[in-house]
């Protein structure tokens, strides 16, 4: 037989195997979390805060962490939108597309996007000390906002870049200023993509642990103010796993299942949403 054909065959098999292995790692992770977490999942878990002795196996749930994570990621996402949308609009509407400034900025955001969350956590912590803040919901929001800022900017930049030039020219021809064009034409046209980016950033904010470990603290109560510490789901999982009581570890698995489901729902919603909203966009 032809040696070339044998080599072709071998590598083809290897490639399919590699792809299969990578996909099965995803399936394995999801299945493990499902199988281990499901027996411990109960209504109590998601509707109650930890009661006395929760970490010894007594009653209660992780509502504090669920609410804490939602507040934290929600606040951080809002804060990050306030900064990222203007930046993405500036790069695409106000500056010339071939300007050196634009490519330098894009490089800066790409690089920033590669910075790990623990470093954002450490930097957030130095900021907090500088401003005299304690570990609090606000501190966590700032750290997570910094973390998701570069990915939001880059994602918004990508979708806004796809807005047809002619559409903007048409708007200018009608006498609109760049600001009006940016706000009423470009943003509206790119809205589906922007919302997808926002949802993905929100999911990332919920799932991140390393950035909040210094900055948000942890508490068994649902946070009532920005200056109080806030529990987060990833840290709740982490702390429960560290307790050598089987019941509590089981709840850690259930918490991991809740977190995973939350993330999956958000990412499916992001996909759906973008598909639905695209119908109203000028093609």
């Amino acid at each position: 037989m032809d040696r070339r054909k044998v080599e072709e065959g071998i590598f083809r098999v290897l490639m399919v195997l590699a792809t299969g292995l990578i996909l099965s790692s995803l399936v394995m992770i999801l299945l493990t979390v499902l199988v281990k977490g499901l027996p411990y999942l109960s209504l109590e878990m998601v509707t109650q805060t930890p009661r006395g002795g929760y970490y010894l196996g007594k009653g209660g749930g992780i509502l504090n962490a669920i609410i804490g994570s939602l507040y934290l990621a929600g606040g951080a996402t809002l804060l990050a939108i306030l900064f990222s949308l203007p930046v993405a609009l500036y790069l695409n509407v106000y500056s010339r597309p071939d300007a050196r400034f634009v490519s330098v900025c894009r490089l800066a955001f790409d690089v920033l996007n590669g910075v790990p969350s623990i470093v954002f956590g450490a930097f957030g912590f130095t900021l907090m000390i500088y401003f005299g803040l304690r570990a609090s919901l606000l501190g966590g929001i700032i750290a997570i906002a910094l973390l998701i800022l570069p990915m939001l900017i880059r994602a918004m930049d990508e979708v806004i870049r796809l807005v047809p030039r002619e559409l903007m020219d048409a708007s200018y021809a009608l006498g609109a200023t760049r600001w009006e064009t940016a706000l009423r034409v470009v943003t509206r046209q790119a809205l589906p993509g922007i919302l997808t980016a926002v949802l993905i950033a929100f999911g990332r904010g919920i799932g991140d642990a390393a950035a909040v470990i210094f900055t948000a603290g942890f508490t068994d109560a649902v946070p009532t103010s920005l200056l109080r510490p806030a529990a987060t789901l990833p840290l709740a999982i982490f702390f429960q796993l560290g307790v050598p009581v089987p019941e509590v570890q089981g709840r850690a698995y259930a918490s991991a299942l809740i977190l995973t489901l939350l993330i999956l729902i958000i990412s499916v919603a992001a996909r759906r949403l973008s598909r639905r909203l695209t119908r109203h966009v000028v093609k």
């Binding site: 992770i29 281990k36 919920i206 991140d208 642990a209 999982i237 982490f238 796993l241 995973t260």
Partner: peptide, 22 residues
């Protein structure tokens, strides 16, 4: 396959840790 890889990218690191421990 591509969306599945995107999902893998979105899984929080704590969940990877739980899987690793288990």
């Amino acid at each position: 396959v591509k969306p599945l890889i995107d999902i893998l990218a979105g899984i929080p690191s704590v969940v990877f840790g739980v899987w690793g421990m288990l």
